[in-house]
Amino acid sequence: MARRRIKINPMALIGLTPMIATAVGVFVICIIYSIVLSFTNSRLLPNFEFIGFAQYERLWETPRWLISVRNIWLFGFFSIAFNMIFGYLLAVFMDQRIKQEDAFRTIFLYPFAMSLVVTGLVWQWIMDPNLGFQSAVRNMGFTDFRFSPLTNEATAIYGVIVAGIWNGVGVTMAILLAGLRGVDEEVWKAARVDGIPTWKTYLFITLPMMRGAFITAFVLQCVGVVRVYDLIIAMTQGGPGISTQMPAVFVIQHISGRSNVGLGMAAATMMLLPIIVLIAIQQYFAWRSRRRAAGIGAAVATLPQAQGVKAS
C-alpha cells in the first residue's frame, strides 16, 4: 500500500466498509481463530492452553468422527454421482423437443425451493416403517415388501442420500440443460452427416464439450455435501446410533451440547482442508493458463479464488 496508483475516494471506502469487515473479520480472523483453538484444550469457553496436535490425535480416535468421515465420503460419492447421471439424463431427455417442457422443468426444480428441513421431514415420513411407503405397498398385496432404510444402521445413510438427490437433482438438470443448449448446432449437423447415433453423440461428443457446465454443477454439489446439516437433523438426528453422523453435525454438537470446543475446532479445521486443497489446485491451473497467456501481455488482473468455475 506504499504507492497508490488510484486515489481512494473516501466515500468508496465507507461504502465498502461492511464488505471489508466481513472479508477480514469473518473469513480471515474467524477462520484463524478457529484453527488456533483447535490446538488448545478449550472446553466450554475458549482458552489458550496450547496442547499441540493432541486434539487431532483424539479426533482421529473418536468413532463418532470416523463414522462422520466415512459418511461424508459415502454421501458425497453417491449423491454427486447420482446427481450427475440422473441430472444429465433428465437434461438430455428434456432436450428432445418435448411438449410441456416448462411443466416438466417446474416439477423437477420445485423441490429445491423447499428447505432441507422440509425435505428431510417429508422423506422421513415416507420412509416410516409402520405407516409409510412400506406399508402402502404391503397393503397392495406385496406382503414381503421391505423399504425402511432409516431404521437400519447399515442403510440409513442411503435413505438420506435419496432425499438429498430429490432436493438437488433439478438444479443439476437446469445447469446441464443450459450447457446442452450452448453446444453449437453445427456439431449436431456434423454428427448426423457422419451417421453417428444420437445417444453416442450425447455421450461422446456433447458431454466432453460441456465441461464447464459439469464443473459448475460439481462444485455446487461439493459445497452442498460438505455443508450437509439440516437434512441429517431433520431426518435421523445422526441415528440410528451414530450411523448417519456428519462432520457438520459433529462440529455443532461439540461446540454446543458436548462443550468440547478444542475437539470441535479440530474437526472444523479438517472440514476446511479439502476446500483449501481444491482452491489450491484451481489456483495452480489458473496460474498455469495465465503464464501461457502472458505473451499477450494483457494486464487484466484476473481474480483469484472464485475463478474455479468458468462455464460460459
Binding site: 469473518v26 473469513f27 474467524c30 477462520i31 478457529s34 483453538l37 459445497v223 460438505v226 455443508r227 462432520p247 457438520a248 462440529v251 455443532i252 461446540i255 470446543v261 470441535g264 475446532m265 474437526a267 472444523a268 479445521t269 472440514m271 476446511l272 476446500i275 481444491l278 482452491i279 479464488q305 472464485a306
Partner: peptide, 9 residues
C-alpha cells in the same frame, strides 16, 4: 466456499 462450521464458533 468455506464450510459454515469453520467460522461459526
Amino acid at each position: 466456499f468455506v464450510p459454515y462450521q469453520v467460522v461459526i464458533y
